[in-house]
């Protein structure tokens, strides 16, 4: 039987190499493409003929868009709205990857369970925060790390800590999502293994498999929740970091 980590293995579907770099189309790439296609269908159908009184699809798209806009309004303020498309893209992409990875039977792969993907997204957020911060405030952006109204010695100490915590943001952001996705899938796999092992107990077949199966059913529901919550957390933290860059506290 496959080990619990095997589901995260990258399988090359179409080898590509350019300039000495391995750019192979893998199962991860495929599921990112599926996520992209799902979002594209959702958005293009939902906004094909936008109307004042929305239909079901349009209402669904508007709901998600409004959710992101409200989050930015609350956490960033009026200037946050111009970043709504970016945060919306990140949120939808993470959400689609998380949810599609939970599909059973189709050999689903969760790109967001790979630190390469989550780190890529987190670095994108971090880069945009830095660009916006320096573009809006110049070198004044560094006052973000300086505590107001303390003596210089303590201030310098806090400055170093704040700066390091700022630099660690992309890693914490990436690891949070990666760890949540990985842990969930490992847990599902482990309990799935229990179902098979205990269920194939020779003298009394199936009976002992029921309990881990019930656990797995509950875990699946929990994983759907986590998939949504982690996409929300990722987008929320991205907007909070943007708020730092735009408003400097």
């Amino acid at each position: 039987m496959a080990g619990p980590m095997e589901q995260f293995a990258i399988r090359v579907l179409h080898p590509i190499e350019a300039g000495g770099y391995d750019l192979s189309f893998t199962n991860s790439s495929m599921w990112m493409a599926i996520a992209l296609a799902s979002i594209a269908i959702f958005l293009f159908v939902g906004t094909a003929r936008p109307q004042l009184v929305p239909g079901r699809w349009q209402a669904a798209v508007e709901y998600t868009y409004d959710f992101v806009r409200k989050m930015l309004d609350e956490n960033v303020g009026p200037e946050g709205r111009r970043y709504a498309p970016l945060i919306f893209s990140i949120f939808m992409f993470v959400l689609a990857c998380n949810l599609l990875g939970l599909l059973p039977w189709v050999g689903a792969f969760t790109p967001t369970s790979h630190i390469a993907v989550t780190l890529g997204l987190a670095v994108l957020v971090f880069a945009i925060v830095c660009i916006v911060g320096f573009w809006k405030h110049g070198l004044h952006f560094f006052t973000l790390f300086w505590p107001k109204g303390t003596n210089p010695a303590l201030g310098a100490f806090v400055f170093v800590i704040e700066f390091l915590s700022f630099l660690s943001r992309p890693f914490t952001l990436a690891i949070r999502l990666f760890a949540n996705m990985t842990a969930g899938h490992v847990l599902l796999k482990v309990f799935g293994t229990f179902v098979v092992t205990l269920g194939s107990f020779g003298a009394l077949p199936y009976v002992f498999g029921i309990l881990p199966l019930a656990v797995n059913v509950a875990l699946s529901a929990l994983e759907v929740l986590i998939a949504v919550v982690q996409a929300y957390v990722f987008a929320l933290l991205a907007s909070l970091y943007l708020n730092d860059a735009i408003n400097l506290h």
Binding site: Y21, L23, F25, S28, L36, A40, V61, Y65, A116, V117
Partner: peptide, 23 residues
């Protein structure tokens, strides 16, 4: 590397080709 490259490609398509056209 392959994951980052494909992430870049797909996220760029998502942002410029889907979200920028619909939202």
């Amino acid at each position: 590397v392959p994951q980052l490259v494909w992430l870049t490609v797909f996220f760029a398509i998502l942002y410029f080709g889907v979200v920028a056209l619909t939202l």
